[in-house]
Design a protein around this nucleic acid. Structure first.
Length: 444
DNA sequence: GCATGATCATGC
DNA sequence: GCATGATCATGC
């Protein structure tokens, strides 16, 4: 992918857009400065490596946010997969140290915590044991976290609870279970003397603590973020899923042109009807015309384009059939049956306000049994009617699932019917309405 | 806006 | 030359 080497530190959006370039990559793959030998092997501190090698930004050594000018704090945090393959927070997100002396004098509105954490850019990397930090990938797009209005009262209450403990001279009694979203977590090494601090209203030393968001709070954020960005959560770590995800996810929301440029493959004619399909194959196969791995798995890549209102622009066609063939076949060995039993990879585009197509979502899918029965019904009905009158075949209104329509090279692409006439070649189509339901109910 | 009819460029 | 995935076009 072509990388822009510049971003503006005075624009949140610019920083955010720049950060998105990390999506699907590791720091090593995108770093514009060679990474020092010492850091190449490092297994920790990815956050500061990202700041140094990716953002080329030296954060202020103060309690101000990393991007001070726009009040944006940068966080880098780990993800792991649970047993079902879902992405989860590896741990709590540490926000900022608690200074017992100063928090006692603070008000919520002007608190250090709020200044630092109401606007954060959170980068999620996929944690892998023993792997150098610079090789860890960022599998999902960064999250621009603005403390949700609905969460503010709870976080504020948590903050006030912790502050009150300090005011009561009970900072040493703080525990993670005290609060709901925001917790005072232990910070520092083994709990030896050096991790003890003075507190203003008691002579008892208190453990060094930092504000952090609970792991469960992080999981909620991640879940919401994944859903919102249309990322499909795949219930498997199968490498094919993984590979597709890594290739497509960075382009969610991107225009067709941007995807086109990324693989250096362009539409040559406005009438190139299979262009998006070819483009996606190239994107998935590192620029090749075919994706043998997906072919081998019998995966059927289909693109769908939605109008601004979210309806599929077209029905979806399948290979053409010959009248003289279908009347001799059984459903089980028909090509339509063979096709719909496959696993599909749907890649969905949507027209934006100015008519530009953007990658909207994608996902694997296979047709549920009940719908396969309906497909069979339409197929049997087609076979029955071809024998009677090949010019009268199931129309779109006759099934919620599929219908039959022409599929020909041109007006002369006609074939013989059992009635002895020549008629335009036909194929099965999945109905727009069915695709619509599928995209919105089964792909997310 | 929908149903139906009619093709298009590509790649093997 | 032909199958394919997909889109364009027309009429109501």
């Amino acid at each position: 992918m072509q990388m822009s080497s510049e971003y503006s530190k005075s624009s949140v959006d610019s920083i955010y857009q720049f950060a998105k370039l990390l999506t699907g990559k590791s720091l090593n793959e995108v770093s514009q400065i060679p990474i020092d030998a010492g850091n190449i092997k490092s297994r920790g501190n990815l956050g500061s490596l990202v700041e140094r090698y990716f953002f080329k930004h030296l954060p202020p050594n103060t309690h101000h946010p990393d991007f001070e000018e726009v009040g944006l704090e940068l966080k880098t945090t780990g993800l792991v997969r649970d047993s079902k393959g879902k992405l989860k927070a590896k741990e709590r997100l540490v926000l900022t140290m608690i200074h017992y002396e100063s928090i006692a004098k603070e008000e919520w509105e002007s608190s250090n915590l709020l200044q630092k954490c109401q606007l954060m850019l959170i980068l999620f990397y996929l944690y892998q044991k023993d792997k150098p930090a610079v090789d860890l990938k960022f599998p999902i797009s960064p999250l621009l976290y603005r403390m949700p209005e609905i969460d503010v009262p709870i976080i504020r209450r948590d903050w006030e609870f912790i502050r009150q403990r300090v005011l009561d001279g009970r900072a040493h009694e703080l525990s993670e279970g005290d609060t709901f979203y925001l917790v005072a977590c232990r910070k520092g090494s083994g709990g030896e003397d050096e991790s003890l601090q003075n507190q203003p209203f008691s002579n008892t030393k208190a453990k060094t603590r930092a504000f952090s968001f609970k792991q469960s709070y992080m999981n909620k954020l991640i879940e919401g973020h994944i859903e919102e960005s249309g990322i499909i959560q795949l219930g498997t770590s199968d490498s094919l899923y993984e590979a597709t995800f890594e290739k497509l996810e960075p382009f969610l929301g991107k225009t067709l042109d941007e995807i086109s440029r990324s693989v250096d493959y362009y539409r040559t004619s406005t009438n190139q009807k299979g262009f998006k399909h070819s483009l996606i194959v190239r994107l998935l196969s590192n620029g090749r015309k075919t994706a043998p791995e997906l072919d081998k798995a019998g995966i059927e890549i289909k693109t769908i384009t939605l109008t601004q209102s979210g309806k599929p622009k077209e029905h979806m066609s399948f290979p053409g059939f010959r009248f003289m063939d279908i009347i001799q076949q059984e459903w089980e060995d028909s090509s339509f049956n063979e096709k719909i039993e496959r696993k599909f990879l749907f890649v969905v585009f949507k027209l934006d306000e100015i008519g530009e197509e953007r990658l909207f979502r994608f996902g694997y899918w296979n047709m549920p049994y009940k719908d396969r029965l309906e497909a069979q019904r339409v197929w049997e009905e087609t076979k029955r009617r071809v024998l009677i009158d090949a010019k009268d075949l199931p129309k779109v209104g006759e099934s919620y699932l599929a219908h039959v329509r022409p599929k020909a090279r041109d007006g002369s692409d006609k074939i013989r019917t059992p009635q002895g006439e020549m008629h335009l070649k036909q194929c099965f189509w999945l109905n727009q309405n069915y695709l619509h339901k599928l995209v919105f109910e089964e792909l997310s």
